[in-house]
Measured scan of single mutants.
Amino acid sequence: RDEDEKEKIKEALKRGNEDKAKEIAKRANVSPEEYERLRKEAE
């Protein structure tokens, strides 16, 4: 379940949809550090 959320965040970031990614991260309680890591992976 947690991994699904992280995949959704990465997908949103790949599409350049940072607002959606942040919204998912907030809902999934993803830490800022984890969010940054996902953002780097998505580049």
Rank of each mutant, 00 (worst) to 15 (best):
N17L: 14
A42G: 03
S31N: 08
R27V: 09
G16M: 03
D2M: 08
K6H: 14
G16S: 03
I9M: 03
A42R: 02
E3R: 10
A25V: 03
R15C: 09
A21C: 01
G16K: 05
K22A: 10
A42K: 02
E11H: 08
I9R: 00
A42Y: 06
I24V: 05
D19L: 12
R37G: 06
E18I: 14
K26Y: 09
E41G: 03
E36A: 07
N29M: 05
I24M: 07
E5V: 15
E36T: 04
R15P: 01
G16R: 04
R15D: 13
E41F: 03
L38Y: 05
K26R: 11
V30A: 02
E36D: 10
N17C: 07
E34Y: 03
E18T: 11
A42E: 03
K40W: 14
D2Y: 15
E3W: 13
A25D: 01
K22N: 05
K8R: 12
V30C: 04
E33D: 10
A42I: 11
E7M: 14
E11V: 07
K20E: 15
A42D: 02
K8V: 05
P32M: 11
N29E: 09
E36L: 06
K8D: 06
E7K: 13
I9F: 02
A21V: 01
K6Y: 15
K22Y: 07
E7A: 13
K6E: 06
R39V: 12
A42L: 08
E11D: 12
E43P: 03
K26M: 12
E7S: 12
E33G: 06
L13A: 00
E41Y: 03
K40M: 13
L13V: 04
D2P: 13
D4N: 11
D2A: 10
P32L: 12
L13M: 08
E23S: 06
N29Y: 03
A21K: 00
E3Q: 13
I24N: 02
E43F: 15
A28H: 13
L38I: 10
R1Q: 13
E36R: 04
G16H: 05
E33A: 10
A21T: 00
L38A: 02
A25Y: 02
R39L: 08
E3G: 10
E33R: 05
K14G: 04
D2Q: 12
N29I: 01
N17F: 12
R39N: 03
K22E: 07
V30Q: 02
R1K: 13
I24R: 02
N17E: 15
K14F: 06
K40L: 15
E11Y: 05
K26V: 10
R1T: 15
E23D: 09
E11Q: 11
K40S: 12
E7Q: 14
A12E: 13
D4S: 13
L38W: 05
I9D: 00
R39F: 07
R27N: 14
L38M: 06
S31D: 08
L38D: 00
R39D: 02
K20A: 14
E33C: 06
I24T: 03
E5P: 15
R27H: 12
I24G: 02
I24E: 03
I24K: 01
L38T: 02
E34Q: 05
D19A: 15
E3A: 10
N17W: 14
E43H: 11
K26D: 13
P32K: 11
E34A: 05
E41A: 06
A28L: 15
E3H: 12
R1I: 14
L13K: 00
L13E: 00
E41T: 04
V30Y: 07
E23L: 07
N17Q: 15
A12H: 11
S31I: 03
K20P: 01
R37P: 01
V30M: 12
K20G: 08
V30D: 00
E41H: 03
I9E: 00
E11N: 10
P32W: 13
I9V: 06
V30F: 08
N17S: 06
K10S: 03
A12R: 00
G16N: 05
E11M: 09
K22P: 00
K10G: 02
K6F: 14
K40G: 09
E23N: 05
E5Q: 12
R39E: 06
R27A: 14
A25I: 02
K22H: 07
E34H: 03
E3T: 11
R27C: 07
K8W: 09
L13G: 00
A25R: 02
R39I: 07
I24S: 02
E18H: 12
L38E: 01
A21L: 01
E41P: 02
E23M: 08
A21D: 01
E5R: 06
K8N: 09
K14Y: 06
R15W: 12
E18P: 09
R27Y: 11
E43R: 09
E36V: 04
E43M: 15
E33N: 06
E34G: 02
E7G: 10
E33F: 06
D19E: 15
S31V: 05
S31Q: 06
E18G: 06
A25Q: 05
A28E: 07
I9P: 00
E18V: 14
K22T: 06
K22V: 07
A12W: 14
A25H: 00
R27I: 11
N17R: 09
A28R: 03
I9W: 01
E18A: 09
A28F: 14
E33V: 07
A25F: 02
I24P: 02
P32Y: 11
S31H: 06
E34K: 01
R37H: 08
K8P: 02
K14R: 15
E36M: 05
K26I: 12
D19V: 12
K40H: 11
A25K: 02
K26W: 08
K40P: 02
L38R: 00
K26N: 10
E43A: 13
N29G: 15
E3V: 08
E3D: 14
K6Q: 08
R15N: 15
N29F: 04
K20Y: 14
E23W: 06
E3P: 11
K20D: 11
K40F: 11
E3N: 11
R27S: 11
S31K: 07
A28T: 07
E33P: 04
D2E: 14
